[in-house]
């Protein structure tokens, strides 16, 4: 088995869930539980594909996907933050709307081909033997996803705005009492989460598959949600979780293709086993890391 090709495949396979999960993590850090990741991803997938096919530019496709999914997520924000609807139910509704809407928009794009996204040729780095083709011969979205993880980490840890976002997520009453605009912060976080999910979806339809088929994200959004919990709401954990999930599924397929005798069933369930073990350890320690106000509705009393 060629480790160079394997690592390259893992990076491609992990990128959509990494993008969706890092966005959702920010949303949950602000205290909002948006279960509509799957719906936002599939809308991103269809919008990205449609725009890329129409304009011939995959970059515009990714931009359009991010905008479309952010707009869709704001409908969730409007319902949950201003009209105080139940977040779980609204999030599930968002998924259903996304799946239906994408099927409607996508019906004209079945069987079409997407313009291919050029691999970024980084001068110098790409020429390094082994590491070059392994790590430095991808398209820009792979690097964007990694840069986003680093940016989110730095934002939450070192910036004042990141501190406010965390404060809003931990205790929205106190944050409100201090004069922070709880709803506004949450709306921005929701839009960011939507844009990330849209990018992730577009990566599936423009790079990983590359075509539009109804229902093509096939549950990737739910895996992204699980990864946020797995990561205990930490950016590095999200990165590890996404690469673990992507990695195990790719390695599993490669082991089969290479004709090894490791049981398929064992490999397929390993990421879920690891998630359960991590969750047990976390709850045994008593510190699960979930934001204090996660999923609770906020209504300013005064």
């Amino acid at each position: 088995m060629d480790p160079v090709l394997l690592v390259a495949s893992i990076m491609v396979s992990a990128t959509p869930i990494l993008l969706a999960a890092i966005g959702e993590m920010v949303v949950e850090k602000s205290g909002v539980l948006n279960l509509g990741v799957e719906g936002m991803m599939i809308v991103g997938a269809v919008m990205g594909f449609a725009i890329a096919v129409t304009t011939g530019s995959p970059v515009l496709g990714f931009l359009g996907a991010a905008v479309a999914s952010a707009v869709l997520s704001l409908s969730f924000g409007l319902l949950t933050q201003y009209l105080l609807s139940n977040q779980v139910a609204t999030g599930l509704g968002l998924t259903l709307v996304g799946l239906g809407l994408s099927a409607l928009i996508g019906s004209n794009y079945e069987g079409q081909r997407a313009p291919s996204l050029a691999k970024l040729d980084i001068p110098g780095l790409g020429g390094i033997p082994v590491l070059g083709p392994m790590l430095f011969a991808h398209d820009f979205v792979v690097y964007l996803s990694l840069a986003l993880v680093a940016a989110v980490w730095a934002f939450l840890k070192y910036t004042r705005a990141g501190l406010i976002l965390r404060a809003v997520g931990e205790d929205h009453e106190s944050a409100h009492a201090l004069g922070y605009k709880v709803v506004r912060v949450r709306m921005l976080a929701i839009a960011f989460g939507g844009a990330c999910a849209g990018l992730g979806g577009a990566y599936v339809s423009l790079v990983r598959v590359p075509q539009w088929t109804e229902g093509m994200t096939a549950g990737a959004g739910w895996i992204a949600l699980a990864i946020v919990v797995f990561a205990s709401w930490r950016p590095l954990g999200v990165l590890i979780g996404a690469y673990l999930f992507g990695g195990v599924s790719v390695i599993q397929l490669n082991l089969q293709a290479a004709g090894t005798t490791v049981p398929v069933e064992l490999l397929s369930m390993s990421p879920y086993l690891i998630t359960i073990i991590v969750l047990v350890i976390i709850s045994a320690r008593g510190a699960h890391g979930a934001p204090g106000s996660l999923g609770r509705p906020f209504h300013a009393a005064s």
Binding site: S9, V12, R208, S249, V250, L253, N254, Q256, A257, A258
Partner: peptide, 9 residues
């Protein structure tokens, strides 16, 4: 992904 794995192998 499965197709890619087969090609890689």
């Amino acid at each position: 992904d499965a197709t890619q794995a087969l090609l890689d192998q």
